[in-house]
Design a protein around this nucleic acid. Structure first.
Lengths: 333, 333
DNA sequence: CTGTTAGCGCATTCAG
DNA sequence: CTGAATGCGCTAACAG
């Protein structure tokens, strides 16, 4: 009873399917006003809706892209997704979003399933664990774009934050404000998640630039669950840091929690600066100085670039685009 | 060069397409070990990947659902989406997520596009502005499920918070703690966004229950941009509230901002309780008492119910499921 | 300007 | 146990 197809409207309108098809897709064809009206009438009367699956099969394109993020719960991810969705809507595309949870196996399954579904392109926050798969895709010229994380030796367009710059901004600001024993904490460095590594590197370079010593005991990359302990150790040091850079929002939370628990006054006893903006930075006590990444612009750029790849416009494509972080000075430093 | 189809593997394996198809879908058929191996070999050698679009066209199901949220940037939405995505993965489904931005027109376009794409079902945070469309879908028995917002007189399975209960919990707690002039603020009540209305209703009922007066000047539903002013007026009252319920997270932020700006001490001068959990509730000064909604469970339930609808299991379906909010007492009350 | 003819890639009878 | 035939709903030449 339900599915009314093109054949039905063709029959009712007394024309052939192809005429209907033409009517649907390109009104510019000059078709007699008469048949036009008849077709229109028929489709209205039948409540006909074209079936895009059939169309996709024929045309080999689904107007759908896939977005594979590490975890949609991260603010950064949701902001990027939001922008992607916005530009997709403009282009009449849809986005399938998937959580890989930093699990290469899961990432792999998603990529394969999505490609089997003939998705037109893929934006991924790569786990870094499927080099072969990535490689296959570039070899096949499949529209692909990485966000947030850098994968070495792979010619894939990538939208990244200038992570070293982010740390540098933090260090510069701290130094200008008179701090000299600047520490940095971030989440685990074990996996090959490049932003974390780059941020640590940027931190070290910036210290050097200012002629400050790099002390092993002042920077750590550890699992969130160990942060409390690591922080405790750091502040038991003969020379504890007088300022702390949080490598990301999760870390910032832990630092704040620690400070609260031990009654460390910010910034009097420790200055704190976070990389990644957090919703409450403005209303915290004290208001938090942060380094924000332009998540929305990054998402927009990612989607636009991917769509450009899909449309096959052979525009210049910068392989790597680094976006500039921005320092927002508040009162925690 | 690229697309290797079933015909190709059939040719290479020296069998017919249907044999390959059978091999792919149901190994249980007893097929000679020999041909099995040959097929396997062929598909490996050719790197054959089945085309789901073709399959979908034939089978009339895409293993894809649509999720239309008001705004993915809300924590609640992202948590719900996260759960949905999780159960979809289990079921080998995919989720297309769309932002309707509380715009009925946009919602409509999405619904139509997604249905044209033969999506198997839809989870929507309804704007409430497309009653006809919703109605059509129920008439067609199209798998559909609403989340967060209630739409009157429509037999659609809905996953909602017990919003009145949320306010009641807040009021009860406040009363127990000795507050008597309890105010409530929330975002605009103009549109038919039911949670806000229900929360206000719950607030009034709870006041009545405790024999407390309902004062017009103590509760407001206004746009975020006007909150600062409204709050100012409230605290200029001869009898300002001694406790404030924030109808959602956005409102909570505004209240906190206001308190900070005017040096209102929480809870000494005003107690504050928020409906909706916020990331910083535990580390704020003071830690914030909140009413949390079980977003993950709600998302999980939504996805499971929708998939059940899709599978056509004629299980009992409660039309409306209200989830219980939970009070987390911290120190802002 | 409109109809005929062929598929897209796969699944499904139905014979052999 | 395997293959030939048919069609899902739509588009795309190519004729008329």
């Amino acid at each position: 009873m339900k599915p009314v197809t093109m054949a039905d409207v063709a029959a009712l309108a007394n024309v052939s399917k192809s005429t209907v098809s033409q009517y649907i897709n390109n009104r510019y064809d000059y078709m007699s006003e008469e048949t036009k009206r008849r077709i229109e009438e028929a489709i209205r009367q039948l409540g006909y809706k074209p079936n895009y699956v059939a169309k996709s099969l024929k045309q080999k394109q689904t107007s759908t892209i896939g977005v594979i993020v590490a975890n949609i719960l991260h603010t950064f991810s949701t902001q990027v997704i939001r922008s992607i969705e916005d530009v997709c809507r403009e282009a009449r595309f849809h986005a399938i979003v998937c959580n890989a949870d930093d699990n290469p196996q899961q990432e792999k399954e998603y990529i394969e399933m999505l490609r089997a579904k003939q998705i037109d392109g893929l934006i991924v926050f790569p786990t870094g664990g499927n080099i072969d798969l990535y490689q296959t895709m570039v070899k096949e010229q499949y529209p692909l774009l990485f966000v947030d994380r850098f994968v070495k030796d792979l010619p894939v367009e990538s939208i990244l934050l200038d992570n070293e710059k982010a740390s540098e901004l933090a260090v510069d600001h701290l130094v200008e404000s008179g701090y000299r024993k600047i520490g940095m904490l971030t989440t685990s460095l074990h996996s090959n998640i490049t932003p974390r590594i780059e941020r640590i590197n940027g931190y070290k370079k910036a210290l050097e630039k200012h002629g400050l010593p790099i002390r092993e005991e002042h920077y750590k990359g550890v699992d969130v669950r160990q942060m409390d302990q690591v922080l405790a150790e750091m502040f038991r040091l003969p020379e504890p840091p007088d300022a702390l850079i949080a490598g990301n929002d999760l870390t910032l939370m832990e630092i704040l929690k620690f400070a609260k628990k031990h009654n460390l006054s910010i910034p009097r006893q420790v200055a704190v600066i976070g990389i990644d903006e957090v919703s409450f930075s403005g209303i915290y006590h004290p208001p938090l100085t942060t380094i924000v990444q332009p998540a929305f612009e990054m998402g927009k750029q990612a989607a636009e670039s991917l769509l450009a790849q899909i449309k096959g416009s052979d525009r210049e494509r910068k392989e790597i685009q680094r976006f500039a972080p921005k320092l927002i000075i508040r009162e925690s430093t």
